[in-house]
Write a protein that binds this DNA or RNA. Sequence first.
DNA 1: ATACATGCAAACGGTTTGCAGAATA
DNA 2: TATTCTGCAAACCGTTTGCATGTAT
Lengths: 132, 132
Amino acid sequence: MKYSKQRELVLETVMENPIHPTADTVYAMVREQEPNISLGTVYRNLNLLAEQGILRKIPMPAASDRFDGRTDPHYHIRCSGCGQLFDLPLAELAGLDEQLKNLPGFLVTGYQILFEGLCPECAGKYPAELKR
Amino acid sequence: MKYSKQRELVLETVMENPIHPTADTVYAMVREQEPNISLGTVYRNLNLLAEQGILRKIPMPAASDRFDGRTDPHYHIRCSGCGQLFDLPLAELAGLDEQLKNLPGFLVTGYQILFEGLCPECAGKYPAELKR
DNA sequence: ATACATGCAAACGGTTTGCAGAATA
DNA sequence: TATTCTGCAAACCGTTTGCATGTAT
């Protein structure tokens, strides 16, 4: 892997903005410092950095993938109010690995969870009953 | 909702084939009985039936959505070997709801899990170490 | 008659890719 | 110089949509 200014900016942007940006968001942000960067380059670098394990790609069902500077295992929650993606301060799911080992037939190697709900800020704004 | 032969076939196909087919697969299957049906109609009906809760749409990260005739809560596992999606015979995740209620700030309303691993058949074929 | 559904094809959004030229090592 | 990278634009894939026509109520 050879150095490039573009890649440095892409990485820096994801690292310094823990907002789990989409490729498009990264593109917009990097463009402020490097107006000629192309969206393709942003994608290429994000994917490359994710492959190397330097950052993480969070595939989102029915939405743009997001990228995360944190590479340690942790959960995410999408806020139905503002649409943002947050880290969820939830401990490892206890007992799950246990259950998974004892499944007849299947060999589970991993899983992805995406939580849905309201972030602290939106939980305040919305009434008791929550909608989509 | 008005009756249509096309919708009936789409529903029937999903119900009778518990393989969690994609829209494309449903299209191919229905076409054998109704060669003139269009892919758009298949999509429209699958979405409509899912909205009504008659069947379930399973959004798949970085892949085509799948549809499920089973509407009761249960988990799925994607086999890394053959790519098929299976029901996972796993009990409700115990204690998770507990943990979720006590999260500071966040109000969790739901979650989706997708497991990854090897199905019984593929688990036999592959050696001990498993890859992607 | 009036909804609602269909087939078709075009449009869409997110992402990837082929290419010729530019930058790094 | 050899390799990797870039910008650009076109291609791609899964899905949705507009429209004129057809069908169920």
